[in-house]
Nucleic acid binder design. Sequence first.
DNA 1: CAGAATCCTCGATGATACTG
DNA 2: CAGTATCATCGAGGATTCTG
Lengths: 123, 123
Amino acid sequence: MKKNELMEYNCPLGKAMSALGSKWKPIIVLVIKDRKLRFGELAVRINVISRKVLTDQLREMEADGLVIRQEFKEIPPRVEYSLTEKGLALLPILYLLEEWEAKYQIKGPKSKNDCTLLDHKIS
Amino acid sequence: MKKNELMEYNCPLGKAMSALGSKWKPIIVLVIKDRKLRFGELAVRINVISRKVLTDQLREMEADGLVIRQEFKEIPPRVEYSLTEKGLALLPILYLLEEWEAKYQIKGPKSKNDCTLLDHKIS
DNA sequence: CAGAATCCTCGATGATACTG
DNA sequence: CAGTATCATCGAGGATTCTG
């Protein structure tokens, strides 16, 4: 079964998971949050993924109506990403997921609200 | 980046997405819901995935504390799956996701609450 | 019935180099 | 700076067969 094949089925959750399917997208949503971010900033904050994948994910999210891509025709280029209303509506749900994880976590290192993923490899 | 590598990072949402990462797991949770289901029933209801993958997913979910696997030493064998408290706590969040999808959906065929994925290929 | 074992495919992801 | 283009890999997932 290919990546977004689920969307073809008449399953609401399936479609939701298509838009949110990659484990990156929720994180990207959470990183962008309510401010605008340039591509480079995103790439630094989520540097566990390659720039190519980040680009791909952002493109898909744009197509799914989660993010807005604003391109400035300048030199050097500048592109800013922000959440659409749909993307913003996802935030509270993602927070619930975080709480859920925090509440029921069993194993793994301590993790409060410090999302060290975001600036993990910045040296 | 390998499948559950995210879990190694100190990111709550990342860990949540590890447990919920596969796009199948949310659906499996939703299918099991609050009743017990035998493996065969699950396989029929979610027949878009192979039995092998279903088995794998269930094993992972068991390890993540989402489902309980109850094996009856009978012939023929019988195995029943049910949700743990942690898994049950996920349900309201998944419903929110469905609502979110329903509210903001743009394209695709009409889909209310009929999750035809579940009995899609049953002929 | 509920899987385990095996083999195989293919697509997501990464690495690298290049560009306007 | 924000990508694109190209090539390579590798592991999730599928198909099939077998078993207690």
